[in-house]
Amino acid sequence: MTPKDFLLHYGRQFGTLIGLLGLVIVLWILTPYFLTISNLLNVAQQTSINAIIAVGMTFVIITAGIDLSVGSIVAFSGVVLASALQAAIPLPIAILIGLVVGAFCGLVNGVLITYGRLPPFISTLGMMSVARGAALLYTGGRPISGFSSGFRYLATGEILYIPVPVIIMVLVYVVAHVVLTRTKLGRYAYAIGGNEEAAVLSGVSVKFYKAMVYGLSGMLSGLAAIILTARLNSAQPIAGMMYELDAIAATVIGGTSLMGGEGRIIGTLIGALIMGVLRNGLNLLGVSSFVQQTVIGSVIIIAVLMDMALKKQRK
């Protein structure tokens, strides 16, 4: 890529990155506790769960869809995984079960949207309630807790001082970036979101790839559930409430357009980090949760306003 192509491709993300750096500088000035290695790793770890869910959300939003069910899928995969662990099912298989449960819920969304012709909003809204109810039913409303240290390593472990969830997050982003830029799934996700009819007429199996994208989103929710469960040493049927909104926010701040067809995976990572850094920084400064909500909401609105301003400028 020439530098000009690079700017065409990542211009918007570059802007978001500068926003993140600006935020970091501001917090660095305001509090001595922020810019320390231990706190930055802390932020990365806290961001990892939202960041991983937001990857799936980015794929979905690039196809011009939306997935409101991710939080509930986190809860449901989490409790199923937890019960598998407690039934002394070997760790790798239990983890696989967690991923499969998530992917399955996502695929159900996908099938309802493509073959059932439901709008994504409706289908995933339904799944949000169904998966939540299923998690409550499955556990009788009680959390399942207490797991082996082997499993908990997924959240508490460190490799070369770097927390395992951060490593998982980085791996997910590298893979997702490759999938989005270098595979058929990625190429078609953009095409479907950009113009579904034109994609069909170009021979894209829109239904198949759409269903896959929702399946992927579900599977990543399953992965997030694994980390969350390990982190809290407990799987709660009421876990993951409102995670969908955090994931959508990270995606949108990162420059992915809700109209579909546009977005970069790196932008979503920056978006998730902006949210994580904001929360962390506001905690460090001792700002109340009321103000925090207001600030994060404002950042989302400004990010989208900025997006629109940029587009207008290009035209």
Binding site: I18, G19, G22, L278, M306, L310
Partner: peptide, 25 residues
């Protein structure tokens, strides 16, 4: 004109800063 696109993110930061400083004042 073009530079404008990179200024906006700073505004985001500035807003966050303003609110945070108000909050702990």
């Amino acid at each position: 004109m073009k530079k404008c696109r990179y200024i906006i993110p700073f505004l985001v930061g500035a807003l966050a800063l303003t609110i945070t400083t108000c909050g702990r004042g």
